[in-house]
């Protein structure tokens, strides 16, 4: 490890870290927001479940580099625009989460869903205030996978010149210099752990009922 180099480049490394975190977080959140209604549709109308989840699976097989390169052509954005990266990763997140959300909703007991209807809930309100809250533990577990996968996928965008921790890898390889590569790997790991912890905490905070145990 060349500590000197690290010291001299610390400002830039922090910038890259923040940029990396932002790209991965934005894709994860937008992906979740898009996947919730799609998953609800796949659950509510059972016939849409096979095509939606198959389509999602197919999307996930598109190589990320190909997607990064093709998207500007489709969206009309500039090739270096970070929005391309966010959208590409959002596609992957949605692909992962549609099935998760549909399965999470299926994990809500039928009796609870029925009693929401019997109490006079309209479908959307039942979904938002009864079914989604109860699906949080399962959705949270899927979200952890998506978030960590996004942290690792973001670095591929370095090949396009979108600056983030992946840039340290390309530079390291070009200069045959190990220090930036090691720093990039460690910081990516740190970020992945950070995301994971945040999601686990958010899941716990939003499900106090899941830890309620018989008190007698």
């Amino acid at each position: 490890m060349n500590w000197d180099w690290l010291g001299r480049n610390s400002d830039r490394i922090v910038d890259l870290f923040v940029q990396h975190a932002w790209l991965a977080a934005a894709a994860t959140l937008v992906g979740l927001v898009v996947a919730l209604p799609l998953g609800a549709v796949a659950f509510r109308y059972r016939w849409t479940y096979p095509p939606l989840t198959t389509l999602a699976g197919l999307l996930y097989t598109i190589p990320s580099l190909a997607l990064f390169v093709v998207l500007p052509g489709i969206l009309g954005t500039r090739i270096l625009d970070p929005v391309n990266v966010v959208i590409a990763l959002t596609v992957y997140t949605v692909a992962l989460l549609v099935r998760v959300v549909a399965d999470a909703l299926a994990s809500v007991p039928e009796a609870v869903r029925q009693s929401a209807t019997a109490m006079g809930y309209r479908p959307v309100r039942s979904l938002v205030t009864v079914q989604f809250p109860l699906a949080v533990p399962v959705i949270g577990a899927g979200l952890r996978v998506a978030a960590v996968s996004n942290v690792s996928l973001v670095s591929v965008a370095a090949l396009l010149g979108v600056e983030q921790l992946g840039s340290l890898f390309t530079e390291g390889f070009q200069l045959n210099f190990f220090t930036p590569i090691a720093a990039g790997i460690l910081l990516s790991l740190l970020l992945a752990v950070l995301f994971d912890v945040v999601i686990v905490l958010a899941t716990r905070l939003s499900t106090p009922w899941a830890r309620a145990v018989p008190s007698r």
Partner: peptide, 18 residues
């Protein structure tokens, strides 16, 4: 609206766990 005006008790209570 109709359902809000009719009490409903389900087997196993069907309470909202959350």
């Amino acid at each position: 609206q109709l359902r809000r005006g009719i009490g409903y008790v389900i087997q196993n209570a069907g309470l909202f766990p959350h």
